[in-house]
Each structure stands twice: as C-alpha cells, then as structure tokens.
Design a protein around this nucleic acid. Structure first.
Lengths: 338, 338
DNA sequence: ACTTTTCTCGAAATCGTTTTCAGTTCAGGG
DNA sequence: CCCTGAACTGAAAACGATTTCGAGAAAAGT
C-alpha cells in the first residue's frame, strides 16, 4: 500500500498523510482520521521513497579494521547503542586491514547511501586524507586524533606512561618494549612515546636493542618476545602495546621458564578479558571503548543535525589495573568486565 | 549530476544510460560514448533511486544478540567476507539480548529496507515464529536449527558429547554440568543432551543436584561453579556449556585451592582465545564460526538469486581440542587462532 | 470594519532511476 | 523480393514519497 492508496482510504490528501508523519499543519480531525487508518491498515511510508526525496538515509557507515577484536567490538556496541536510540541504522564494513576493502567502503560514500561515517582508525595514508577531505559527509575518527577532523580517542600516551611507570616504581631498571608499527598513531606512536616519557622521568636510559615491533595478535607477541628476550636476557620488565601481544609474551615466558613477575614484569594497554584470566593476570590499562563508541555516535548525530557544528577532539582518560604480572594482588571482582 | 544531465552530456537518451549500467541492447558506438562520458564526469547512478525503482536494496540485515562475544564476531566476519565479495552491504543490529531492540529490528524488515536477513539466534519465542513466518524475505537462521527455515548450525550435541566423553574416558566418575538456559536450543538444550548422551554411554548415572544453570559470562560461571561445587564437593569433572562459563569456573577453582585437572577436570564448547591462554588452558570443542557465517551468507545469496531455492539445514562438525584442563599437554602452536 | 497573522488545505512538481512499449533498422533465409 | 527475427532506440510511465505554492478560513490586532 502506498501513500496514494492510503490517502484515498483515509479520505484525505497525500499531503496530509505526509504531514501527519513529518509534522506540519494538520487539523485535529484529519489527524484522528489518519491515525485510525494507520491503526487499521498498518501503513507506513516507504523508507526508500523517503530517502530518494529527502536525500537522507538515516544510515551511518562504520568502517573498522577487525571485528573480532575486543576493543573494536566494544566500540561498535557503543555506537550501536546510540544509533539505535536515535532511529539510525548501522552499516558495517569490516576492512580486515585490507585497503581493497577500504576502497569499496569509500564507494559506498560516493553513492550517498549513508548520512555520515565513523571510521575506526589504525593506519592513515596520504590517500586517506585526500578521500576524507573531499567527502561532503560528516566524519568522526574513532581511536585516534586526526588534525582537521572530529575525533574521539584515548589518552594512549598517558596510558602507556602509567603502565611503564608502574613497573619502574617497583624498582625495575631494565625495561623492554614490544610495540606495533609507528604508522598506527594511537597504538604505535603514542604508546611508544608514553613508554619513553616514563623512562625519561625515571632517569632510565632507553637502550636501542630493547624494543621490538609486533603485529596485533598473540602469536606475533610470542615470536617478538622470543627474539627480544633472547637478544636482551637482562630485561626485568616489559611493556606491551596491546594485551594480545602481552599474552603472547606471557605464553613465551611460561614455556621458557621465565617467571612473571619475579624475573620479568609485564604490562600492557587494553585490559582485555583474556588478559584478566591469563596464566598470570596481566596488569593493563583500561580504556573506555564502549564510551568512546557512544561519544563518537553522539558527535556524529550532532553534526548531522547541525552541519556547522564545530570540529572537536575528545580524549578519554584511562584507568591502570594492577594485577599479578607486576606483583599486585588483584581483588576477585577485578576480573569481571564492567 | 543525475541521469538526465548525464545523458544530455553524453549525447544519448536516459534509457541508453540505464542500459549501459544494467546490461541491455546498446550499440558499440553509444557504449563507447557513455564510457568516455563516465570517465570524464565520474557519474554513477543514484543507489537510492535504483532502490526505489527496482525494489532491491542490496542490503542484508544481520541480527545478533551480543557483538562483543568471540563467536558472534567471527560469524559476522564470515558473513561480511561473502557479502562484500558479492557487492552486498551489511546492516547490523545488536539486540543486546533485548526484545525491544528485536522489535525495532523487525520494523526495519517491514520497511523493506533490506533484501534478506541473517538471524544469529539464541532464544526463540512463539512470537519469533509468527513474525518470521509472516516475512516475505529470505531468512537464514545462524547458530541453531529451526524447523521450516534455512539454517546453518553446529553439531552442539556432538560437541558436548565429545567434551564430556573425553573426561569420562580418563576415568572420571562424578561429572558435573554447568549449562545455560534450555530456552536456547543450541547452547542450552543440545549441549545438555550431548552431556547426557556421554553419561548414558559410559553408564554413569546423572545425579540431579550435579547440574546448574549460568548466564553467558565469566562472572556467572564463577558464581554457579561456587554453588555447584559447594553443594557437590565430590565432583571430579565439570562440563561447561561455554568457554566463558568454564573460565569463570576455573577462576573459582584457582581462588579456592581446587587443582585443575587433578581435583577437577574442566571442558567446554567454543574454543575461545581466552580459554586457550587461561590459567589452565581449557580443553574445548572448536566450532567453525567463521565458516558458518560464510555459509549462511552464501545460502542467503542463493535465495536472493532464486526465491524458490530449497529450504536447507546445514550442520557443521566440530574438533575437540584437548588441553591441560583435562591433563592433556597442548602443543605450542595450539594456542594461536586459526 | 479593516488588515494582519496564523492555520489549514490539496494540486502539482520533484527526487533519479528502470522498464515498457511501439517502432526502426538491418542481416539473412526462403 | 519478401519475411522474420534480432539488435537497437527513445519517449513516457512508473516507483512512493516530500515540499512548494497559492489560496481560503479563522483568529487576532488596530
């Protein structure tokens, strides 16, 4: 049933029906008649016709690198919360760290099939800037700051600093670093800087051989821990850019008789469930992923309502969660997710 | 730029342009002219107008109960793989186990905004059947069988049987059961049945007090393990319906001096990353989540191409992964995700 | 009694496509 | 040379809504 049929059924004009659904001048009498007819027929306007006519889709695109990572999943949950509540729909593109898929995602944008975009970021290339710059849609970058764009991010530098400083404050003198590629500003560069901040602050020199770069998974953490610890057996504490990497490192220690925390303290950023229940519970820095997702969605909605809303960068704080991997006893309830 | 302007620019009719993009009789000469014009202007048809006119959206709705669960995330990744490759888009609704959100999701369907649905299932109410039955869209149920509908599911009963039988084959005589609500056919009912199958097969009687029901998270696993093990201290092995529950139970054992596997063997279904790196690595049954997602998407595409394709239920097999929680040594590479 | 403002109304134009339809051209078979 | 079918064409009619516009009625202000 379309609006014409429905209007005839209700005994009013098409315009009146449209006004009924969108708000506009309408007498009480017609309003009641339409309401009754809706009740009787279950009519509702076609979203597709509305999209064509109004040029609004009420759809938001979320682009992310990997769905099956706890942090991404939680951010998307936060986004979904807010979008649902505001009657927006969530289009998901999982790029699987694949630039071909990113291009496909950008095609979606060109086809005007969404009103706005939330981009969960890892590595930004110059190409990104070009494409994002030429977009006429509101964009929110989630997970790192990006000059000229709205963003919601975590204090990665502070988080890494806190984790590292915690180990140094316990008297450790020979810190190692297991990071990710510096091309990733948040998890790569900022966490590296935070690590260095803590060393500088404590007057501990950074030895060149004591750092290594891993990928975003446990296996790589294991391998890099292996090469790093073989090269630098004197390390007494290790900061890992992510929980996954830390778990991999921990696994290496377990299988090679390195006691944690006695021989080697380990800290990380991310505070994942897996880290909390690991062989040795890992001291990690909790970031507010879900909140970040919510905030990003709210920010986007704001920009959809008012295209001239100001460009804003919000940075969320963090919470250090000391656990056994740094010799701290963890209270029982610490394990459970919030 | 719309088709009219573009047709004028290229010096052809609107119909020719449409045929260029959709395939149809078109002389080589016009084809070349249009191709050149596309190159020059970057014109492409408006998806929204196409949707309205053709009544196809090239969008698929995925409804799931909880995004931040490893199993769901992996299934969605599988779905996304296939959809992307076939130029379909993925609309995501996270119901957060909330029926209000499910209603909202069903509204989406009524508004004809998607071509098909993949429903990642937990609990089915009679209401579900009504709504699903009245749907004129192809639906695939993912995660459990559902009479009358297409589905892709796991052999949950077999999986639970394998896990339980593994413990009994090691001489354990007093098995406990930590399940989830039977309203959930797959994780609740079928896994319970598989557990009972194994007991029957081994001639071990099922004592009434030796089972307990938990929610889908670690904390609940901890609590239920606590009540169960206090009530039945003689248990020597424990089957858990999910890895999360098993991890909670393991955590309880750890904090109460119960040795795993010496005092209590533990098995579960799901084979999550967290279970592999837990305090004691958990013997679990691996299900092929990603494959299931792929299959579901492929099945849906088939039904989109041919509305009369036959209703089909595929059941995937499983792989038992013996680990330390049942006294099996796990090879190093066993930890890493496939 | 007059203007002005505020509501209310429906016809018609519009959004950007696809598809039908009636018709033309052209090659090849008889 | 006629006939048939295949290849091709573009005007026009959908698809199902929103929004503009001009106008009428009622209320309010002067």
């Amino acid at each position: 049933m379309n609006i014409t049929e429905f209007a005839a059924y209700a005994g009013v004009s098409k315009a009146a029906v449209s006004r009924y659904f969108n708000g506009g001048y309408l007498s009480e009498e017609k309003r009641a008649r339409i309401a009754a007819a809706v009740e009787a027929t279950g009519y509702h306007p076609s979203l597709q016709a509305q999209m064509l006519r109004t040029r609004r889709t009420r759809q938001v695109l979320v682009i992310l690198p990997k769905l099956s990572s706890e942090s991404c999943a939680r951010m998307v949950e936060g986004i979904s919360d807010v979008l649902d509540k505001n009657n927006y729909h969530l289009l998901l593109v999982n790029t699987a760290n694949d630039s071909a898929r990113e291009v496909a995602a950008l095609n979606l944008l060109q086809q005007n099939t969404v009103d706005g975009v939330i981009l969960i970021a890892t590595i930004f290339t110059p190409e990104h800037r070009t494409v994002l710059g030429s977009l006429r849609l509101p964009v929110i970058i989630l997970g790192q700051e990006y000059p000229g764009f709205c963003s919601v991010s975590h204090d990665d530098r502070g988080a890494a600093h806190a984790a590292t400083a915690h180990m140094l404050s316990k008297g450790r003198k020979a810190p190692g670093f297991l990071g990710v590629t510096m091309l990733d500003k948040a998890a790569g560069l900022d966490r590296r800087r935070g690590f260095e901040d803590a060393l500088r602050e404590a007057g501990v020199p950074l030895r060149p051989g004591r750092t290594s770069i891993a990928a975003f998974n446990m296996e790589s953490g294991y391998e890099q821990a292996s090469t790093l610890l073989k090269r630098e057996p004197s390390l007494d504490c290790l900061f890992c850019a992510t929980d996954s990497i830390a778990i991999g490192a921990l696994q290496y220690c377990r299988s090679h008789g390195i006691r944690v925390p006695e021989d080697l303290m380990i800290t990380a950023v991310g505070d994942s469930e897996a880290g909390r229940v690991a062989y040795v519970p890992i001291t990690s820095v909790q970031l507010h992923y879900r909140t970040a997702g919510r905030l990003a969605a709210e920010m986007l909605l704001e920009h959809l309502a008012d295209p001239h809303a100001k460009v804003e960068s919000r940075v969320l704080d963090y919470v250090l969660r000391p656990r056994a991997s740094t010799g701290d006893a963890s209270p029982e309830e610490d394990i459970w997710a919030e």
